[in-house]
């Protein structure tokens, strides 16, 4: 199975467009947004500067891009094209395909997190304790598993033609409404009430609590855990259905 992970990874690293959108693009948006306020402006109700606040948002956004965009489309297309069937004629266990996809996405999502941190520290002078940098990297990286599961579920749910629009709507909907592009505090109250139940909101809130040196909110952890169970369960169910159909 490691051979399949390696090949998936080689393929992902060769795909310049995918690398640009998952690794470079989040840092570019970070610079554009973080420059809007001066370094003393605090984001309402958080005690964090805009740069510090947006750093977590964009690192989360980058990780989300890496694990969601690549997998859902690839899985849907490879299901339709018959590669998934071809793999079933090899001794590779059925879940090996999904695990290889998730593992290679996780390898790409790590640099997309770290690059945002490096840009934030170098250009916007974001300063945190060493443990915070490590904890942030770990939390955002581990949290991206929730969205990797969502990517797999979408890949098994959608057909090859429909997968891109469905993924795009999900991706932008979750990013914008979850407050990854701008603080949800700028939203009208009714929208804030919806946003706080989104997995992306909980995901970024997890990172922000580390920046604030606080314990994560129980609600955020619960929301993330619930969505992980939902997405992973859905992915497993759809995967089994697809296997019986093939």
């Amino acid at each position: 199975m490691t051979s399949l992970i390696k090949l998936e990874l080689a393929r992902a690293l060769r795909n310049r467009k995918f690398l640009f959108f998952s690794v470079i693009y989040p840092s570019v948006i970070f610079l554009l947004v973080a420059n809007q306020g001066d370094s003393r402006t605090k984001v309402e109700g958080t005690g964090l500067t805009l740069a510090t606040y947006m750093m977590v948002s964009m690192a989360s956004f980058g990780a989300l891009t890496a694990v969601l965009m690549g997998n859902s489309e690839r899985i849907a297309k490879e299901r339709e094209g018959g590669w998934v069937r071809q793999l079933r004629l090899t001794p590779l266990p059925g879940r090996g395909y999904v695990l290889a996809k998730t593992a290679s996405a996780a390898v790409v999502s790590l640099p997309s997190i770290v690059v945002v941190f490096l840009v934030a520290a170098a250009v916007e002078d974001v300063r945190l304790d060493a443990w915070q940098w490590l904890a942030l990297t770990g939390a955002i990286w581990a949290g991206s598993l929730v969205f990797a599961a969502l990517g797999v579920a979408l890949g098994y749910l959608a057909s090859g033609d429909a997968v891109r629009p469905i993924t795009m709507i999900t991706y932008f909907g979750l990013s914008i409404l979850g407050g990854l592009w701008m603080p949800t505090t700028t939203f009208p109250t009714w929208l804030q009430d919806i946003a706080k139940w989104l997995p992306t909101h909980a995901y970024a809130a997890l990172g922000r609590s580390i920046e604030q040196s606080q314990a994560p909110h129980a609600q955020d952890v619960a929301v993330l855990a619930a969505f992980f169970v939902l997405f992973a369960g859905g992915a497993a169910w759809l995967y089994r259905k697809d296997t019986l159909k093939a």
Binding site: L7, A10, G82
Partner: peptide
Amino acid sequence: AMLQSGGLMDEVTVAELVRLACSLH
């Protein structure tokens, strides 16, 4: 086995794909 409906992984080279098949066997 070789199926009509069996697809191939794209964006990789022929040699990479064959090496993958060998390593899975």
